[in-house]
Design a protein around this nucleic acid. Structure first.
Lengths: 213, 213
DNA sequence: GTAAGTTTCAAACGGTTGTTCGAACAATAA
DNA sequence: TTATTGTTCGAACAACCGTTTGAAACTTAC
């Protein structure tokens, strides 16, 4: 039956998202997942086929809409002829991330951490899928950045995009490298709006400084 | 005998460093390590006690000297009265990282990736050890940044340090989030000097922009 | 009602995990 | 030399892994 199927499957998806973020893919066993989701052990293989396929489902469920939202914002910006404002281009990426972080079910916020983890872990299950299906994302943003920062050479442009996206991904993922060294985090507030309020000027300062080459 | 012991133990350490970076802690089995290091399976438990303890040894072997080197540079800078130059303060962190990245045995460069992985994975084996023994690191740099950027409020200062260190850690770890989306990396050169050349101005731009609060 | 199709369930599969053990070996010291 | 200590080795341990299976339970359609 459709309702039950969906019920079990999405319960698995949600618990998996939580556990994958908390312990990582390898350290999360199907038994941990199915116990916490209160479903039978065999349910994962029945509904998703394998643990690997489950991970892809968990990931893509959030990732595809996020990428689409960013590109849609970029489309809209360029349509109204405001594509040469670097701040606005940056915001087309920030806003969908912000929306995810605000997800009332908290699943979205979790996912940003999963995304960041998957990227630095260079996950074997995602390497092909990402470069195959989402190279458009990078191409589009490279174009957009080039247009909004016309005074930069290709070298400068590459480096600054590299730093800017790394910074933004990590900021939303809440990867506070300093927090880990001491008991109380440097920044107590995890409020996504507060992040953006400080993150955007920082990123823009780096992006708009005078060209080096 | 001392030579043999060290030989086996350090061979384990070096292979582990490589495999932990490549596959992660959980996905690296003792059998993979001992096979590649050409030592007996039981050698790990004999020399290190457990897989967990091995990880701590692998990590601390590089981490402790790195932190010490940074603090020594900071000491030297303040001793010669140049502590109010934010660029020089930043460089006291950059230079030891750079030295690690240039390690001819390549172990150092690998470690920076391991460090970054461990930080975003928030490794259970490191959480306590780091905040227990290395809070001095954060304290010292917070002081140094506060002195070099006196016009900033505490809020601004926290955020900017948060962004700056996240950026620097990721840059040295070579976590190119854009690279993953397409076949050829945005930045082909992995040359540490080239990284620094572009990284430092970017970080300084964010750190020195006008205060927001 | 019966039949067909879908989903759940307990149990087991073969394989791998980290760890332990005691014997074998090597090296040092008396 | 013998005794002692530190190290290596193969074999085994119990526990856990992802996956499969076939029967039970349930839902839907006729």
């Amino acid at each position: 039956m459709e309702v039950n199927r969906s019920d079990t499957a999405t319960r698995i998806l949600e618990v998996s998202e939580l556990l994958f973020v908390e312990h990582g893919f390898e350290a999360t066993s199907l038994r941990m997942i199915t116990q916490q989701a209160e479903v039978n052990l065999a349910a994962v293989n029945y509904h998703f086929g394998s643990k690997d396929a489950l991970f892809e489902s968990v990931f893509m469920r959030r990732f595809t809409p996020l990428i689409s939202a960013c590109l849609a914002e970029l489309d809209a910006l360029e349509a109204k002829g405001a594509g040469d404002s670097i701040e606005r281009v940056v915001m087309t990426f920030i806003r969908p991330c912000l929306a995810l972080s605000r997800d009332p079910a908290r699943g979205g916020a979790l996912f940003v951490r999963l995304l960041s983890r998957a990227l630095v872990e260079n996950h074997r299950l995602l390497r092909e899928a990402l470069s195959r299906e989402y190279s458009e994302f990078v191409e589009r943003y490279t174009q957009a950045f080039r247009r909004a920062l016309p005074e930069l050479g290709e070298q400068d442009l590459s480096w600054r995009m590299h730093f800017a996206f790394g910074l933004m991904f990590n900021a939303f993922a809440g990867n506070d490298v300093l927090k880990i060294f001491r008991k109380s985090p440097v920044v107590t507030a995890r409020d996504p709006e507060a992040i953006v309020q400080h993150l955007v000027p920082f990123v823009l300062a780096g992006l708009t400084m005078p060209a080096s080459d």
